[in-house]
Write a protein that binds this DNA or RNA. Structure first.
Length: 927
RNA sequence: GCGGAUGUGGCGUAAUUGGCAGCCGCGCCAGACUUAGGAUCUGGUGCCUCACGGCGUGGGGGUUCGAGUCCCUUCAUCCGCACCA
């Protein structure tokens, strides 16, 4: 009987499903292991072969851990709130929930075909009210919490109110005021300044085309990541989460987790901690007005030759002199109308204007001109900088452009050419800092600044609070209502606040979000509901917890389940979430930890980022209307027949490359008949061939429908089987690297599958011998076990596939059909190719599935002779010695052909401990 | 500009972590078989050379008996951040 993967795979997938083989229990005497994939957004396009890459890797690991005796949690779900379903709803009027449900069904079908060992009973969907009830609940906890800097953790807001009542923390500049004297609205406003979820007027990235605000990481190069629409800055009342309170912990705790350095660096970068000091400058002629700046280089304070304010700085209007007013106003208008995108595009272009006002140097009391310039960002630090053109390249460029003085205060550079930014050298021209090294001068300067009350040592972060509202329909409603302008969160018993039905998924005529169209909200007449919904990342920030106890309706996840499963042990997903999801999920984890709801401070111990699988696009080259020329015939002379056939007078050098469906191209050879049928317009296509074939061009591009380079996993499974697909995806290369998909290579894996099958069969019959295995067979097996176990544990899944092939090749050569070999082989291959492994396992006579088998251990004794084996030539013969082999006598050693003088000296009168031999030559002897 | 990664045959890759570079697979070449196929099997395949032999892990330098692997330097490609004071 031949290897019939279709039947085998169908059989075992059905078996696993009916027997709930991969159901994970929340209690077990076995050690636990939690393997998690980043759950997908179920898009309408379905999965392409790139999507399952990470899932296959995690599935291999999960199955391996089960065989190693672990109680494994390996769940899957859907991040099912999101923009595409809503865009589709706007276009078609179809409820996003219907779209989403259809897409999920399609995803499930595709995933099932690949034979994953997910515990589907624990499936979560972020758009399911039973799930988002708890997303809303966590939001409420955030609203009801504040960050206590003293204890360095989040606490219930009541503890803050208590401190306000006892005035241990001031809540107002007026010290005589009592907390209870404040009106409800005033109290609410004060508390909003402390709550971890708060409402404020914030500069947001507004995308008019999408009709919503976007997070910083959703904006790339000034346009929206999705759709590529322009984004503008706009002041809006918005819900935000105070992630900045966690900046330090998010930064420091990176050291304790096993994530790739690139992700950790990206997060460090994003958090952007910088240490320095604030410093105030008095404004000349304006009694009491001060400009506060932040600097990381207080050592260069004597090099300040002007100040630059952001155009939006609040003092600009006030201090601008009459003479300069016109210029300043023109510049402010220019800066305002310059979009974010334009500003980024010409970073090199230096613009600014002089206010006419002067600041006084805090030490020298010199007059320093105050300028405005859009190289200073309103959103960072204080929106004002002390310009030190001698030692900051941006200030230098500005000074050069506007002919402002450049002072040298750190020795070592040549300021006539460029600024000297390096943080090393001796301080000069700087009064009390003279002669100090930069590092010491920084400390001294801060000390003096603090002592004189001019400023304070300070840490700044680049990280901004996370804007939490979206003016969108398809998201979790924010569970807030307003009474007399004061926001209140819904009581827990009212959760979930269901996403209401609306007549249209568009903003209202008055520009309010779609939720303003809601009709069936329970207290619609009594209160005003919040109309924005939560951003896409809300549901994904805690989903790993819900898998632990997916059906709980009393709490987000049962405490016992959380205590049992703890962190994710292995998390696999794309690197594109580095500063989005992966930061937010850490933030929520820390917050829930602070409230004592979970025992861990980090969501995932180990993170692996699988690389992207790109598409290999194929091109045909069109000349004229329906004439296609083979790649290497472009520009060559045409034969008389070809001229006749095409009706051309000569070859046309103007070719139009067109994407062609990769499924009708094999090894760059176009199936011309299939091409004619592919599209009606090509049915009369004429081809100019080379060697009787049409050769296509190819290029690596992102897999997408429009490029006709999408390869679907379903097609691969149909043609080669799920096991072959699994093996091939792993075989393609290191998991973390991006690589193009190339269907050609899968035939190698497919051959391997048949060879493996044949190993257990003789013709149609199962052919297994119970004879003891030979030493050689055992060596092959144990070598393979050792390699496979090592490969899996170091996530080198690609080399495992090679190792299986080597093993099967060797056993085929040995004609090995011994149970003692083939039984363990079925187990070690099971994580990779579970269907065939199960089938072989049952054909070996086992009643239980392979999931309950034990991964075999290596018996090193079969491998010893393989370990350190060096040929040594002496007496004209070659003998093999192990590194620790001391069997040579001194006399024998002297007969060994020694090629290195250096080695010989060791020999004099000493017994050797270790000989190191390479290339039949002794190269070192340890005595 | 800053940070992270990657450079090995025609291609995807491997190298017990400092020990005979190129395992395994694709492709290609030759042969066998044949119900002529996009099938299967066998053998070969880094480059130069008829050969002896030489050269080879992006380039240059270094450490070492020995370097794809460690150090310095340089180039190329990809990814992330970017006027962050």
């Amino acid at each position: 009987m031949e290897y019939n993967f279709r039947e085998i795979e169908r059989k075992w997938q059905a078996y696993w499903a009916t027997n709930e083989t991969f159901k994970a229990e929340n209690t077990s005497s076995k050690p636990k292991y939690y393997v998690l994939d980043m759950f997908p957004y179920p898009s309408g396009a379905g999965l392409h072969v790139g999507h399952p890459l990470g899932y296959i890797a995690s599935d291999i690991f999960a199955r391996y851990k089960r065989l190693k005796g672990f109680n494994v949690l390996h769940p899957m779900g859907y991040d099912s709130f999101g923009l595409p379903a809503e865009q589709y709803a706007i276009q078609t009027g179809q409820h996003p929930e219907i779209t989403t449900r259809t897409n999920i069904a399609r995803y499930r079908e595709q995933l099932d075909k690949i034979g994953f060992s997910f515990d589907w009973e624990r499936e979560v969907r972020t758009s399911d009210p039973a799930y988002y009830k708890w997303t809303q609940w966590i939001f409420i906890q955030l609203f009801n919490s504040w960050y206590n800097i003293e204890t360095d953790k989040a606490e219930p807001i009541a503890t803050l109110i208590e401190k306000f009542e006892h005035k241990t923390i001031p809540f107002s500049e007026d010290a005589s005021k009592k907390w209870d004297d404040l009106s409800d609205k005033e109290q609410s406003d004060v508390l909003l300044n402390h709550r971890l979820a708060y409402l404020s007027d914030t500069m947001v990235n507004w995308c008019p085309q999408l009709g919503t605000v976007l997070a910083n990481e959703e904006v790339k190069d000034g346009v929206s990541e999705r759709g590529g629409y322009p984004v503008e800055r706009k002041l809006m009342k918005q819900w935000s989460l105070r992630i900045t309170a966690y900046a330090n912990r998010l930064l420091n705790d990176l050291d304790g987790i096993d994530w790739t350095e690139s992700i950790k660096e990206a997060q460090r970068n994003w958090i952007g901690k910088s240490e320095g000091t604030s410093l105030v400058f008095d404004v000349d002629q304006f009694e009491g007005e001060q400009i506060e700046v932040f600097t990381t280089r207080p050592d260069t304070v004597f090099g300040v030759s002007f100040l630059t304010l952001a155009p939006e700085h609040e003092l600009v209007q006030k201090i601008t002199s009459a003479a300069q007013r016109k210029e300043i106003e023109e510049y402010m208008l220019f800066a305002k109308n310059r979009s974010e995108r334009e500003r980024m595009a010409d970073v090199k272009k230096i613009t600014g204007a002089f206010t006419g006002a002067y600041a006084l140097h805090p030490f020298t009391k010199q007059k320093l001109p105050i300028w405005i310039g859009d190289y200073v960002l309103a959103g960072y630090g204080t929106g004002a900088v002390m310009a030190v053109p001698g030692h900051d390249s941006r200030d230098y460029a500005f000074a050069k452009n506007f002919s402002l003085p450049i002072l040298e205060v750190v020795a070592g550079g040549d300021l006539s050419k460029e600024s000297y930014d390096a943080k090393e050298g001796k301080i000069i021209n700087s009064d009390f800092l003279n002669g100090l090294e930069v590092k010491d001068a920084v400390k001294k300067a801060i000390a003096v600044i603090e002592e004189k009350g001019l400023g304070k040592g300070k840490t700044n972060f680049r990280l901004r609070d996370a804007i939490f509202g979206r003016q969108r329909y398809w998201g979790e409603p924010i569970p807030v209502y307003y009474k007399e302008g004061i926001p209140y969160v819904l009581p827990e018993r009212e959760l979930p606040l269901l996403l209401p039905e609306v007549d249209k998924y568009l903003p209202t005529e008055t520009g309010e979000p779609p939720l303003a169209r809601a009709k069936d909200w329970k207290y619609k007449d009594q209160y005003e509901y919040e109309y924005s919904t939560m951003p896409g990342w809300a549901g994904s920030s805690w989903y790993y917890l819900r898998y632990m106890d997916a059906f709980d309706s009393y709490t987000f996840a049962d405490r016992h389940a959380i205590d049992y499963w703890q962190n994710v042990d292995l998390y696999i997903g794309g690197a594109e979430h580095a500063t989005g999801h992966l930061l937010y999920v850490r933030f929520w984890t820390k917050f829930l930890y602070d409230l004592g709801l979970i025992p861990m401070m980090e969501p995932a111990k180990k993170l692996i980022n699988q690389g992207m699988i790109q598409g290999m696009s194929s091109f045909v080259y069109r000349i004229g209307k329906n004439i296609f020329i083979s790649k290497n015939r472009i520009g060559t002379a045409l034969s008389p027949e070809e001229l006749k056939q095409t009706g051309l007078e000569k070859n046309d050098p103007n070719v139009t490359p067109l994407h062609v469906d990769v499924n009708i191209v094999n090894n760059n050879v176009l199936d011309v008949e299939a091409f004619k049928k592919w599209r009606d317009e090509y049915k009369d296509a004429v081809f100019i061939l080379e060697d009787g074939k049409y050769i296509c061009g190819s290029e690596v591009e992102k897999m997408s429908k429009s490029k006709w380079n999408v390869v679907s996993p379903d097609d691969m499974v149909d043609q080669y089987g799920a096991d072959a697909l699994r093996l091939y995806e792993m075989f393609l290369g290191p998991l973390e690297l991006s690589k193009p998909w190339n269907t050609n290579g899968i035939s190698g894996v497919s051959n391997f599958m048949r060879k493996l099958w044949r190993l257990y069969h003789n013709g149609d019959a199962v052919n297994i011998s119970n004879e003891p295995a030979t030493k050689e067979e055992l060596k092959t097996l144990h070598k393979t076990i050792k390699k496979i176990a090592g490969d899996i544990e170091s996530f080198s899944f690609n080399t495992s596939v090679s190792n299986f092939m080597i093993c099967v090749n060797e056993l085929t050569d040995l004609k090995c059909n011994k149970r003692a070999i083939l039984e363990p082989l079925a187990i070690i291959i099971a994580p990779y190719a579970p269907h065939i492994a199960e089938e072989l396992w049952s054909r070996l006579g086992h009643k239980e599935t392979i999931t309950y088998a034990e991964f075999p251990l290596v018996n090193e004794s079969y491998l010893v002779e393989n370990s350190f084996n060096y040929p040594v030539s002496f007496n004209g013969k070659t003998r093999f010695f192990q590194e620790y082999d001391l069997s040579l006598t001194k006399e024998e050693l002297e007969k060994v052909i020694l090629t290195l003088e250096q080695t010989q000296k060791y020999l004099e009168g000493k017994a050797p401990k270790k000989i190191i031999v390479v290339h039949n030559k002794i190269i070192n002897i340890v005595v």
